[in-house]
């Protein structure tokens, strides 16, 4: 019996991504004066979208599902300019990313909290 819809799983993955992004942004801003430091970023590999379903022709095939396998990876940013000490952190970009990420995270937490409370409400039968 599947209690928790795909939306909740998607929200969970997004929250993990946002958490990781926050750590990376903090690290970038902390190292803004470190020579030869290359700015990092987080990539979100959502390798399975809900629109993509595997055509299971053999019963030994593993069916895709739109639930898990979204992984995040911390990689070095490409296509950035360096200053003369080899540092590639763009302070303004990082600060705006910080603000954006915070709003994104708050929105996700709000949504997942709302979904949980409505589930609880339904289970309690509106009492």
């Amino acid at each position: 019996m599947k209690l928790f819809s795909n939306t909740i799983t998607t929200l969970e993955n997004a929250i993990n991504y946002s958490n990781q992004k926050q750590k990376v942004i903090a690290q970038n801003i902390a190292n803004v004066d470190t020579p030869n430091y290359k700015a990092k970023t987080v990539t979100f590999k959502d390798s399975l979208s809900s629109a993509m379903n595997a055509n299971v022709t053999n019963n030994k095939h593993i069916p895709f599902s739109a639930t898990n396998n979204a992984s995040t990876a911390v990689v070095t940013k490409n296509g950035v300019t360096y200053n003369n000490s080899g540092n590639s952190v763009d302070m303004e970009k990082e600060m705006t990313d910080l603000a954006t990420n915070q709003i994104y995270y708050n929105a996700l937490i709000d949504r997942i909290s709302g979904k949980f409370s409505s589930l609880e409400n339904v289970i309690r039968g509106g009492k």
Binding site: Q22, I25, A26, I29, A30, V32, M91, E94, M95, L98, A99, N101, Q102
Partner: peptide, 8 residues
């Protein structure tokens, strides 16, 4: 900037 990050 780091203080802002800490608050966030």
């Amino acid at each position: 900037a780091n203080v802002t990050v800490l608050n966030a």
